[in-house]
Simulated scan of single mutants.
Amino acid sequence: MIPVKVKEIAYDIMMNPVVLLIDEEELKALPIWVGHFEAHAIALALQGIRLDRPMTHDLLKSICDRLEAKLSMVVIVDVRDGTYFAELHMWHQGNKLVIDSRPSDAIALALRTETPIYLSEKVAQGTLAIKDLLSEEQQQELKELLESRRPNDFKKSLH
């Protein structure tokens, strides 16, 4: 399995939200298109914003906490016909549970619980080299962004 992190929510040319997962070396990227509500939930978690009332992923985290269920990892396990599939790997009362999930929900929960995210080897084969994904100018902007840790600037560079 390949560890990845969520770099940013970006938007494609049609303004569809894209979660950008990057490897630890920041050389490869996997864009996953998600819905607007899911993108919002992920963006809130990335920015550390907590709302007065729990959103669905906050509720799920609270339920896991109350039931003493621990999310140990999220794995993006497969892609079929352009659709990604994920699994939540959890522990509850000494039992390992593997629960099917949409990647966007799994990512939103992982960010809230500070749980590692992985790609299966099969999914990792679909990653793109950042140098092939972006123009030279965009690569330089991304390099500067990664060095400065200003994630909001990333959205601008992908348009």
Rank of each mutant, 00 (worst) to 15 (best):
Q47C: 03
G48A: 12
I49R: 12
I49F: 14
R50S: 15
P54N: 13
P54V: 13
M55H: 01
M55W: 00
T56R: 05
H57K: 02
H57L: 08
D58N: 05
L59R: 02
L59P: 08
L60K: 00
K61I: 00
K61C: 00
C64S: 14
L67E: 06
L67P: 01
E68S: 11
A69P: 03
A69S: 15
K70G: 00
K70Q: 11
K70A: 02
K70D: 01
L71W: 08
M73P: 03
V75S: 01
I76V: 14
I76N: 08
I76S: 07
V77I: 11
D78G: 10
D78C: 08
V79C: 07
R80M: 08
R80P: 00
R80H: 13
D81T: 13
G82S: 05
G82L: 12
G82V: 10
T83W: 00
Y84V: 05
A86E: 01
H89S: 00
M90S: 00
W91I: 11
H92T: 02
H92L: 13
Q93F: 02
G94Y: 04
L97V: 04
L97M: 12
V98P: 02
D100L: 05
S101L: 07
R102A: 01
P103I: 09
S104G: 14
S104D: 11
D105H: 10
I107N: 05
A108T: 07
A108H: 05
A110Y: 02
L111H: 06
R112D: 02
E114A: 06
T115G: 11
Y118N: 14
S120G: 06
E121P: 01
V123F: 11
V123E: 09
V123W: 01
A124K: 08
A124I: 10
Q125R: 06
L128G: 05
A129H: 15
K131G: 02
K131C: 10
D132Q: 14
D132T: 09
L134N: 08
E136A: 12
Q139M: 09
Q140R: 14
Q140I: 04
Q140A: 15
